[in-house]
């Protein structure tokens, strides 16, 4: 029999260290026997992950349906179906598409959700154009901008998952994408407003962005700086 030199209790033969204080068994006449029967098996009984997605989806659907239904009822009852309620219904539907599929889609989630969210956004813009602000802005300004954001997002996503892995490089890539968006934005605005393209302000904003991206790439090569940043900014 072995005793804990610290606590004075006798230790069961299966105890490698004293369970009360952690001091190791030190008995040359009876060293710890790893084959001694243990009081409990090693198997852990852990909680199975619970799946509340169905319930959560139901709650989100009810919460989003409520304002939509109230607005529709008011629209029909007081403004004789003027159509303004479609803006609220469309907004709620778009929010639903933003939130609920994200609970379920696991494979290629970013790309699939990107496509779904873009479609939902297009749908909502169409509702706005159809029911509230008719004009050419949808085809000449909004849709090209949405397509531009989508293309830039897909390129960045592909590069970040397949080519660029270092955090600072990824940050540099994200910052370097901004000038492309700004140039595209100015092109769309010029085309929509004047019918011709003349780039000016987007270059002024793009230069600092590109310089900042370059700075991030340079810093990425400094191991000491990276370690220091990791130490100070870790979450």
């Amino acid at each position: 029999m072995s005793y804990c030199v610290n606590c004075g209790v006798e230790l069961a033969p299966c105890e490698r260290v004293c369970p009360l204080c952690g001091v190791e068994v030190a008995n040359p006449r009876q060293p710890y026997d790893p084959n001694a029967p243990k009081p409990f098996p090693a198997r852990l009984d852990i909680f199975a992950p619970t799946d509340n997605r169905g319930f959560l989806s139901l709650i989100i659907t009810i919460v989003l349906s409520l304002p939509a239904a109230i607005c529709l009822a008011c629209d029909v009852a007081y403004t004789h179906g003027a159509g303004w309620s479609m803006l609220v219904i469309g907004a709620m539907a778009m929010l639903w598409v933003f939130i609920v599929p994200a609970l379920y889609i696991r494979r290629h989630a970013v790309l699939v959700l990107g496509v779904l969210d873009t479609a939902a956004l297009w749908g909502y813009l169409w509702i706005v154009e159809h029911f509230a602000a008719k004009g050419t802005w949808l085809m000449q300004l909004a849709l090209p901008l949405v397509v531009l954001v989508d293309i830039l997002f897909v390129i960045d996503y592909f590069l970040m998952t397949k080519v660029v892995f270092a955090r600072l490089k990824r940050a540099a890539l994200a910052v370097a994408t901004v000038p492309f968006f700004l140039v595209g934005l100015e092109c769309c605005l010029d085309w929509y407003l004047d019918g011709r393209i003349s780039l000016s302000w987007s270059f002024l904003v793009s230069v600092p962005c590109l310089l900042f991206a370059l700075l991030l790439l340079v810093l990425n090569r400094r191991e000491r700086f990276k370690k220091e940043m990791h130490k100070r900014l870790h979450m």
Binding site: V9, E10, L11, L20, P39
Partner: peptide, 28 residues
């Protein structure tokens, strides 16, 4: 922490009661 268990059993030992401990705390 095992402080409560330690204080309890060492107190009983101090009062002349022979205590043998076993536990599921130690990893096997």
């Amino acid at each position: 922490e095992t402080e409560a268990e330690r204080l309890l059993f060492t107190e009983l030992v101090r009062r002349g009661i022979h205590v043998t401990v076993e536990s599921n705390r130690n990893p096997y």
